[in-house]
Nucleic acid binder design. Sequence first.
DNA 1: TTGTATGCGTTATCAG
DNA 2: CTGATAACGCATACAA
Lengths: 362, 362
Amino acid sequence: MPAMSERDPKPGPAPRASDARPVSGKPRAPRAVDVAAAAEVSIATVSRVFNNPEKVAPAIRERVLATAKAMGWMPHAAGSALARRRTSIVGAVIPTLDNEVFAAQVGAMQAAFADRGITLLLSCFNYDQDQAAHDVQAMLARGVEALAIVGEAHRPDLFASIQARHIPYVVTYSHRPDSPHPCIGFDNRQAFHTIARHLLDLGHETIGVIIQPTAGNDRVSARLDGVRAALAERGLGIRPQHLCEGEWSIDFGRQSVRAMLATDPPPTAVICGNDYLALGALLEARAMGLSVPHDLSITGFDDIAISRQLDPPLTTMHVDNHEIGRRAAAYLLACLEGSRPAKLPPLVPTLIRRGTTAVPHT
Amino acid sequence: MPAMSERDPKPGPAPRASDARPVSGKPRAPRAVDVAAAAEVSIATVSRVFNNPEKVAPAIRERVLATAKAMGWMPHAAGSALARRRTSIVGAVIPTLDNEVFAAQVGAMQAAFADRGITLLLSCFNYDQDQAAHDVQAMLARGVEALAIVGEAHRPDLFASIQARHIPYVVTYSHRPDSPHPCIGFDNRQAFHTIARHLLDLGHETIGVIIQPTAGNDRVSARLDGVRAALAERGLGIRPQHLCEGEWSIDFGRQSVRAMLATDPPPTAVICGNDYLALGALLEARAMGLSVPHDLSITGFDDIAISRQLDPPLTTMHVDNHEIGRRAAAYLLACLEGSRPAKLPPLVPTLIRRGTTAVPHT
DNA sequence: TTGTATGCGTTATCAG
DNA sequence: CTGATAACGCATACAA
């Protein structure tokens, strides 16, 4: 049995910075004990000054504050997290920062969390489900207290591992009515149903679609479904040669519209999965000598900054991406503070009818 | 003197999860001890399996790995960081994610660090120096092992506090030859000197400038300097009414060009601080019935995605923002591994002569 | 109001 | 190759 506990030299590691340190090594960061010693108080008081200032006598408080500042000391997050059992870190898992839609969400979340002293950990999974699952694991290991994840098309174990930790999370950019997850976003299916209806109501019957890859992307799949549903209601469908699926880029928009217009009959309208694709479609159509919207109607999605500036300005749907970020942050913050906010009403993107849609020129 | 160290019930906190836990409380996350117990090994072995697998007998290793996976255990970062004295976190400090230029840099850095098991902490200071200084403090408290910071126009104490911690850092988007900081970027002054020269060589003599706010932004100031220097070499200057400084937005580009063209004499060319401003200028000039570049030459900067797609395509300078992120990450990684990479050659943005510049129509 | 002592979860050292 | 144990830096219950 361990009997004695004298201060005899146990086989402890190397001497500390506060000990006799010859000449070597870089200066260690100051610790709470160092500040305590310098301010001639106990380490507990130093801690209190930073966590419960009101429980410390003003005079002492000022002294500690002053010496801490002089020594450049701040509580070290790792030690603090361990003792407090709170990391004050939340994670955001998005496909990519190269899309201003997600960049805006992250920016808004970051700002909202920063106000509450919470740091945002970021990971981009590049539309790769394995990557996403891996990133979430890493974040859990880092002790994130909450998670915001774009989309719900993820490996089941991703959500399972989050739920196993009983950590609040929220799915963004999605809002299926019957989703098992707390969602903040809009109904992608409904949104594209609205767009398709807009064109149908104008009298279009041959409608093309240029859209992002649907594989492993619930949001995009829902959009395509929405279009299909709206057409079906009028007894119409999308002809295979009028459906182009590929990376969202201006160039893909261009080449897709070029291919479609070479078919017979060509579509009189094209629904694009986002504004970049629509932009490409618009540019290519004009380059081919077509008049938009006279010869071809075009719709986008997202309402990015340039869309209203185009000639003609793009008909699209506006989504407030910053608002999504703010709401996601607010929801997670509420969860962390114990309340369990009940409802998450969907955002409703609004159709902005501008200059690229009109009645078909038959 | 503290004499005994028996295992008597000291006034310790609440019972642990592994202890007799009646019914209450949520299940705690598993710890290394739990895995050790389940796998019938010591906690040290569990740790080794995850850090020095080769020092553990294969049979035992597999057993530990299996039980760890079964229990969903991963080493908790806070404890690990404390013991290891390494957080494996680096910070990125940028103005905003709403500019694709910075978003691209962050994305590239994140990817590069993720490969090495390093997590990126992000902060956006919104062009506010106090915010930036504060954010850096917070990151240091979180134990970041390295920092990447956009620009060098920051409060001196920002850099001082970093240097006090002896933490490697790098300034991005800047590359003054005589900077005291390690920089990864390009010479903004030189770049805009090149642009101005391009226009001067075409024969322009009355040149306007539409640029972002220079206050507290070293990069923008350098750009303006570059233009001024190039003009001065030809005995020219910027007339006050031909210099518009304001937020970078398409709208500001529009209103600025409109104002300039109302002056007498109007400029025959406009240099814009970035592509968004140039885009606005181009759209407004066309809306006013001018022919670009016949009546007015326009240049941008950054070469964002739409620039080459405009009609006419925008003359601008191309910067590889992803490359800046990659280089920044590579540099910091090298520092963390002990080597001190000597030189950081500047990136050289290339002038892309497209359709918006031509000889002036006198 | 202040100080003492203990635990947070992991890694690393050293003895076996 | 494995196990016991002392840090790591801080926060907090409890005693003073």
